[in-house]
Computed example of a mutant assay.
Amino acid sequence: MSNSVIKADNIIKKYGRNYALVGVSVEIEKGRIYGLLGRNGAGKSTLMNIITNRVFATSGRCTLDGEDLLENDKALNRIYAMSESVTMPAGLTFKQAVNITADFYGGFDKDYAYSLAEKFKLDPKKRLSALSTGYLTVSKLILTLASGADFLFFDEPVLGLDANHRDLFYRLLVERFAETQCGVVISTHLIEECENLVEDVIIIDKGKVLAAGKTEDILTDGYSVTGAKSLVSAYCQNKEVLCMKNIGTISSAYLKGTPENVPEGLEVSRPDLQQVFINLTGEEGEQ
């Protein structure tokens, strides 16, 4: 039996004359962990908000197992999205937020939510308005993890968290994923922290998807060569160059494919996910 899947097909979102998303198509499968990577303002939150009906697309379609997600409460109840902004009244206590969320999500696990609150040392009687930035993030993480939804979306999930709480969150997320085999999407620009966690990557910049696929495939689908500018320039002839950067007389090029017939004097390296992200989204250097 195939896993459930969310599909976003050719999503376009305009605000006036400005495009927030331009023809975005992605698939998110249950039972996998995705990294939705992009700089601030790249369109990550907009895409998540369109999938969850918090924002409506200008055109395009989002589905879950073939059912349109637009104003489809039954399908939307299978998705829980933690947003960077606060979506509940600030005057509520965390306990009240738990009760409200449980009313909307039949699979919500209150006991699990309170056990997480204890681990994070979050007082359930405390009002959301009285929480620090870090603990407000913690409250949202707990509600998401305990929701019981088939798909969990996390938008900048470690905002304001200290190192201990960040580590605890990632450990709890892995445990929850192993138990439920939910689909997980982590939207972030802090790539180094989640690189070893995500199985699939979607890199978005200026409203467009630059790369999407299994993390391993994306890492092995490109390489960098570094050396004297003249050598790098000559080597790059008739090859697909994704990014070229120059520092003085030294050049570094990021190319698609696998290295072949690399001349002496050029250093070849395989970039990590952070480097791939920078190469695909960073400004090009002097040509």
Rank of each mutant, 00 (worst) to 15 (best):
E195W: 03
A228E: 15
Y15K: 12
R176W: 00
A97S: 13
Y170V: 09
T281L: 07
I202P: 05
A8F: 03
G148A: 05
K74Q: 09
A81W: 00
S233Y: 12
L37N: 02
N10P: 03
G43D: 02
D167C: 12
S252F: 00
I33W: 01
S230K: 15
T137H: 01
K126I: 08
E199D: 14
G207K: 01
E179T: 11
L210D: 01
V86W: 10
G222C: 09
V138R: 01
E71F: 14
Y105D: 08
K74M: 07
G285N: 06
Q237V: 15
T281Y: 04
V268H: 10
I51V: 15
I51R: 14
L266P: 07
L273P: 02
N99F: 09
P89W: 11
G248A: 03
L143M: 04
E156F: 01
L190A: 10
E216T: 08
E179K: 08
L143R: 06
G248W: 06
S45W: 00
K121V: 11
V241N: 08
S2R: 15
I278L: 08
L76T: 08
D155I: 04
V26F: 01
K44Y: 03
A212W: 04
Y19T: 14
G66T: 10
K214H: 05
L36C: 04
R54Q: 07
A57N: 07
Q287V: 15
K119R: 15
E118N: 13
V26M: 02
Y114F: 15
E240T: 13
G285R: 02
S129H: 13
S85F: 05
A253W: 05
G183D: 09
G257K: 15
V241R: 10
L161P: 03
C182D: 01
I247S: 14
G107P: 04
S45G: 09
L172D: 04
K7F: 05
A234L: 12
I33N: 08
M1K: 12
F169D: 06
G207C: 04
Y80W: 02
Q237G: 13
A75M: 13
F120N: 15
T58Q: 13
Y34S: 11
N279L: 06
